[in-house]
Computed example of a mutant assay.
Amino acid sequence: MKPFQFTRLAALPLAPVLVTQARQLRRDTPRLPDAALPWTGSRPGPDPLRLLVLGDSTAAGVGAETQDDALPGWIAHEIAERWQRGTTWRAIGENGATAKHVLDRFVGAAASVPFDLALLTIGANDALGLRSRAAFTRDVRAIVLALRAASPDAAVLVSLMPRFDRFALLPEPLRATLARHAGSLDMGARLAVGDLEGVVAIPTPPPYVEGFFASDDFHPSSLGYRLWARFVFDSAPGLDFGLH
């Protein structure tokens, strides 16, 4: 068994400290709203791609004023820049959602409308809740399989864990504990979807630049979402949505 599989057990001796730090963090961290409605939109251009953004608070656009300033809008911007195509997009998600929540509550609605490209952004809340690696990877694979079954010709991009070790607001030992457990979940999910056709697991992000985070120092700002969207496509060079 790999050392990553013991990350929850390793946290047990620190449990009293971790619980106290987590409570203080929830108490002191500002709770930002979701991006304003509507969570559907478009960017003009030829032969528009149908985009789905599905997941947790980052799918809900927390940290940005509108979804145009969050992942859907900036992914549409990248599509226009890279392939000169338009986009119609919709976002589905919830602040605090785990992979289990997305699977049980949102994947049906997400799969009910055809799409050409889906971005699943999931994992941070599973790490925060110290969910088991087995449960998380099972749920991520089930979500991706449901999306692939609904739109077999679409590409599915899976963006997993943030780098908790780079979150300045997290005190130690909470920061290191979350980073280790997130690494375990991240590795498991990559293995779980790595054999699926049309699926790309996006690498862990590069260092966060100044201005990446919103005012809560946890969620991306509009700049953060813009950089994230660019990184997503830079990390999936095989994608080609050019007009032929």
Score class of each variant (00 low, 15 high):
Asp28Glu: 15
Leu227Gln: 07
Asp153Ser: 13
Arg175Leu: 05
Arg43Ala: 12
Gly61Lys: 05
Gln84Val: 01
Gly45Trp: 03
Thr98Gly: 06
Phe231Arg: 14
Leu128Val: 13
Thr40Ala: 09
Asn125Pro: 07
Gly224Phe: 06
Asp56Ala: 15
Arg163Glu: 09
Val19Met: 07
Ala154Val: 11
Phe231Tyr: 14
Thr58Ala: 13
Val156Ser: 00
Ala201Cys: 14
Pro237Leu: 03
Asp186Leu: 09
Leu170Gln: 11
Thr177Leu: 10
Val17Tyr: 06
Val53Tyr: 12
Phe218Cys: 01
Leu157Ile: 03
Ile143Cys: 04
Ser222Tyr: 06
Arg175Pro: 00
Ser222Val: 01
Ser132Glu: 03
Asp195Arg: 10
Tyr208Met: 09
Tyr225Glu: 04
Ala80Trp: 02
Ala127Asn: 00
Ser42Glu: 14
Arg175Thr: 05
Thr137His: 00
Asp216Tyr: 00
Arg141Asp: 11
Ser57Val: 03
Ala146Asp: 08
Leu18Cys: 03
Leu52Pro: 10
Ala60Leu: 05
Gln67Ser: 01
Ala110Lys: 03
Leu160Ile: 11
Val200Cys: 10
Leu185Trp: 12
Thr204Glu: 15
Arg133Val: 14
Val140His: 07
Val232Leu: 13
Gln21Glu: 13
Leu117Pro: 11
Pro114Arg: 11
Gly55Ser: 05
Ala192Tyr: 08
Ile79Tyr: 08
Leu103Arg: 10
Pro171Ile: 13
Ile79Glu: 06
Ala80Asp: 10
Ser184Thr: 11
Ala110Cys: 02
Ala70Asp: 02
Ala36Pro: 01
Leu243Thr: 15
Gly86Thr: 08
Pro72Leu: 13
Glu65Arg: 15
Ser112Cys: 01
Asp216Leu: 03
Tyr225Pro: 00
Leu18Gly: 05
Ala76Asn: 01
Gln21Asn: 04
Arg141Met: 07
Ala111Phe: 01
Ile75Phe: 10
Leu157Glu: 07
Leu174Pro: 02
Asn125Met: 05
Ala22Val: 04
Pro171Ser: 11
Gly86Trp: 06
Pro237Thr: 10
Asp234Ala: 13
Thr137Arg: 13
Ser221Phe: 14
Pro33Glu: 05
Ser57Thr: 07
Leu25Phe: 07
Leu185Glu: 09
Ser42His: 14
Gln84Phe: 08
Asp186Met: 14
Leu120Arg: 09
Pro205Lys: 08
Ala97His: 05
Ala155Val: 01
Asp216Lys: 09
Gly61Leu: 00
Phe115His: 12
Gly194Glu: 08
Thr20Gly: 00
Gly73Leu: 09
Leu145Val: 10
Gly63Glu: 02
Leu14Gln: 10
Thr40Val: 14
Asn125His: 09
Phe212Leu: 09
Ala70Thr: 01
Ala91Lys: 07
Leu71Lys: 12
Asp216Ile: 03
Asp47Val: 14
Arg141Tyr: 02
Arg166Glu: 15
Arg27Pro: 01
Glu81Ser: 15
Thr87Asp: 06
Leu170Asn: 11
Thr66Phe: 07
Pro220Ser: 09
Phe212His: 15
Leu18Trp: 10
Leu178Trp: 05
Gly63Asn: 04
Phe6Leu: 15
Ile79Gln: 12
Pro3Thr: 06
Leu71Gln: 09
Gly123Ala: 04
Ser57Ile: 02
Leu54Ile: 04
Phe6Pro: 02
Gln84Tyr: 07
Val140Ala: 01
Asp153Ala: 14
Leu243Asn: 12
Thr58Met: 13
Ala99Pro: 06
Arg163Ser: 14
Glu210Lys: 15
Asn125Phe: 04
Ala127Met: 02
Leu223Ser: 11
